[in-house]
């Protein structure tokens, strides 16, 4: 059984002006579709990465996966338990304790007034458990010292803080960790340390990661499967090899071509044209068609469905 299964997930935000302004200025309601009909599965003990540029809906999916946001349509199923429709409180409780999250900014996600021990123990003590010795054990597991438990977050560097966030995420012995850009705020050498730690923990503890990132190189390194998002839609999904050696969707091809390369000395590229469209008024049909070199009339009329292509999945009319 899949660890996490997302089916036809859609999230619409109401970004209208206040009621009175709408009446006086005769404005229609403005609805922003952050995530639109996204379906994917994450197998147990694997790393599934969601990549996309800002506004592609990757963080919104992550928040729905942990239950911080509720979907407008569709469902998120964790270990067979539907997070939005399950009514049995005991089952819900079990599903929730299996999920943890790591956020991007290790400076904003630790309470500056709490000692590290209390921060790490909270997921357990909040459920009435006993946290004696837990923080010390976890700190050593993430490469810090047990003595650090009595310190406050400001005494640590960015990389060390991210280690504390990881320790906190591990406290309730989760099966699934949703990592939202966990290394984006870190320097390369620190990023390498944190990524290696995450790989070690995943192997030792049998964890499943839903890894959200905009950094293609990080995603290529860490994931077993990658989903590429564009304007809230999943456009392509495949293993790192499938995706990087044989990108099928024109958007994926554009992203890979635009990404800076370490061996691209003096490379002159034709930079991609245009920018991500406004999600309040997305293009008709395929959302990528205004920027797509392959676009035909069909692309502007009809939204492509996900289909199998050489072992990977792609949502494009023209991809061959």
């Amino acid at each position: 059984m899949a660890m996490i299964e997302v089916t036809h997930l859609t999230r619409i935000f109401d970004v209208s002006k206040p009621w009175l302004n709408r009446v006086l200025e005769r404005l229609p309601k403005a609805l922003l579709t952050a995530v639109s009909d996204v379906s994917f599965k994450v197998e147990e003990r694997t790393v599934y990465a969601l990549v996309g540029e800002s506004g592609s809906g990757k963080s919104t999916i992550g928040k729905m996966a942990v239950g911080l946001l509720s979907p407008s349509e569709g469902s998120v199923t964790i270990n067979g338990i539907d997070l939005t429709r399950e009514t049995d409180a005991a089952k819900m409780d079990k599903a929730r304790s299996d999920i943890q999250m790591i956020f991007q900014d290790p400076y904003a996600s630790l309470n500056p007034r709490w000692k590290v021990r209390d921060i790490i123990n909270e997921p357990v003590t909040a459920r009435g458990g006993s946290g004696v010795g837990l923080a010390e054990k976890l700190l050593e597991q993430v490469g810090l010292s047990a003595l650090d438990a009595d310190k406050f977050p400001h005494e640590f560097s960015g990389g060390q803080r991210q280690r504390i966030c990881i320790a906190r995420a591990l406290a309730s012995e989760p099966k699934l960790i949703v990592c939202d850009e966990p290394t984006s705020a870190l320097d390369v050498s620190v990023q390498a340390q944190v990524l290696n730690l995450m790989t070690n923990l995943q192997e030792d503890l049998g964890l499943t990661y839903l890894f959200i990132s905009h950094d293609l190189t990080v995603v290529q390194h860490i994931s077993d499967k990658i989903g590429v998002l564009y304007l809230g839609r999943l456009v392509e999904e495949g293993t790192p090899d499938q995706l990087f050696d044989d990108p099928k969707h024109p958007y994926t091809q554009m992203l890979l071509a635009a990404a800076p390369k370490m061996d691209g000395f003096g490379r002159e590229i034709d930079p991609p044209q245009g920018e991500i469209p406004d999600p309040i008024n997305p293009p008709t049909g395929c959302a990528f068609h205004p920027r797509c070199p392959l676009a035909t009339r069909q692309c502007s009329a009809e939204r492509p469905v996900m289909r199998e292509l050489r072992g990977a999945r792609v949502a494009c009319h023209e991809a061959t």
Binding site: V188, S189, A192, L195, T199, T217, Q220
Partner: peptide, 23 residues
């Protein structure tokens, strides 16, 4: 050397990235 090595691009195909110890 360590800085270049710790980028995911340079460690392509390795399960672990090369890392510089300490900070």
């Amino acid at each position: 050397d360590g800085l270049m090595g710790s980028t995911p691009l340079a460690s392509k195909g390795l399960k672990r990235l090369r890392q510089i110890p300490g900070s």
